[in-house]
């Protein structure tokens, strides 16, 4: 299915947010996730289904002022 992940269209096989995080290569770094501008907490990723056309954000810790 096609999703928009961090602003870029992606073809993925993941069906849940947890699977998507792994598929996108973030299994070794803490990430924050949002689906259609709603936060998906860590504890809810395995039970949060993703659907065609979803806009997903996967964010990682970065330098900040």
């Amino acid at each position: 299915m096609k999703l928009i992940v961090n602003g870029v269209e992606q073809q993925v096989t993941a069906k849940t947010m947890a699977e998507l995080v792994t598929e996108m290569g973030y299994e070794d770094v803490p990430v924050a996730t949002a689906r259609n501008q709603t936060v998906v907490a860590k504890r809810n990723r395995e039970t949060t289904d993703i659907q065609e056309g979803d806009r997903i954000e996967i964010l990682i810790p970065m330098q900040g002022g």
Binding site: A32, I58, L59, I60, M62, G65
Partner: peptide, 19 residues
Amino acid sequence: VTVSLRRETTGGTGGREFW
């Protein structure tokens, strides 16, 4: 120390090393 959350840039690993 202050930190932020951002999208990872293509091919970049700075965020991971930083954390």
